[in-house]
């Protein structure tokens, strides 16, 4: 059965999205992305090193014709900064998409959802495809959707924490109420976490640290690929209800 993942007319070939931070080098980044099967990679916007002008460029390793480049506003703590980075990213010329982050606090890196909502409204009006990184809060997800977000990206747990989905019930409520796609962003620690997100019915998962920080990032990228595919299939297949007691699966008839 066909299972297309489309957001506003753009078709995505994988439900695993990859962040490109924290790898040892660009070569390892490219190999991990390849192994993951992802077609969306997130990138950050930073200053060009003007004293070393012949330096390498990440996009020499991740061809924008092959991968969908999703610039983020990582490190932005105010609406103004997030808008500034989004506009710069768009002018850098690979995409109208932006993974919008307005961070509220350095220690938790939780989103400042009030600022996030404001920035989402403004950028959606300017024609951006906004992917806001938000809390696992169903009401905020709805507000972001109403403000014009192309999808919502609730966190599973704090960024880089590897704690997995700490509140799968909230994610389920978001899934029930949201009309836009739901992509879990942040918190995945290992393959089973990604799998759980997909089994819940999330449209995709974005992973960075769990892959880049693994002892073998390439192998973990591949593990995540399988986890996401398996989780999606299980979601579509429909899991059985949980019961407290056993139900025999072998027939009792014909026993000697």
């Amino acid at each position: 059965m066909e299972d297309k993942f489309v957001i506003r007319g753009i078709e995505f070939s994988s439900r695993l999205w990859i962040g490109t931070g924290k790898y040892r080098n660009f070569e390892e980044t490219a190999r991990a992305v390849e192994a993951s099967g992802a077609d969306v990679v997130t990138v950050a916007v930073r200053r060009v090193n003007i004293t070393d002008r012949k330096s390498e460029n990440l996009l020499d390793y991740l061809d924008p014709r092959r991968y969908k480049i999703l610039p983020n506003t990582a490190g932005c703590y105010t609406v103004e900064d997030a808008l500034r980075y989004s506009r710069l990213a768009r002018e850098a010329g690979v995409s109208e998409m932006v993974k919008l982050e307005v961070i509220g606090d350095e220690k938790t890196l939780f989103p400042d959802t009030i600022g996030l909502l404001k920035a989402t409204e403004i950028l959606a009006r300017e024609g951006f495809m906004v992917f806001p990184y938000t809390n696992d809060d169903p009401i905020m997800a709805k507000r972001l959707e109403d403000a014009g977000a192309a999808a919502v990206m609730p966190l599973g747990a704090p960024i880089g924490s590897g704690l997995g989905l700490r509140n799968p019930y909230n994610i389920r409520i978001i899934l029930e109420s949201a009309k836009v796609p739901v992509i879990v962003d942040a918190g995945v620690g290992t393959a089973s976490d990604a799998n759980i997100a997909m089994e819940l019915g999330c449209d995709a998962v974005l992973i960075n640290t769990a892959i880049a920080g693994a002892r073998d990032p390439i192998a973990m990228a591949e593990a995540m690929k399988h986890a996401v595919i398996a989780g999606r299939l299980a979601f579509k297949a429909g899991r059985i209800a949980k019961k407290l007691y056993a139900t025999a699966s072998s027939p009792l008839e014909g026993m000697v």
Partner: peptide, 21 residues
Amino acid sequence: VEVVYFVGGGEVDARNKCIEG
């Protein structure tokens, strides 16, 4: 004048501040 481009990045990093940073 600011001249920016894309670098590796996924989730934010607390230590990874903005342009001023």
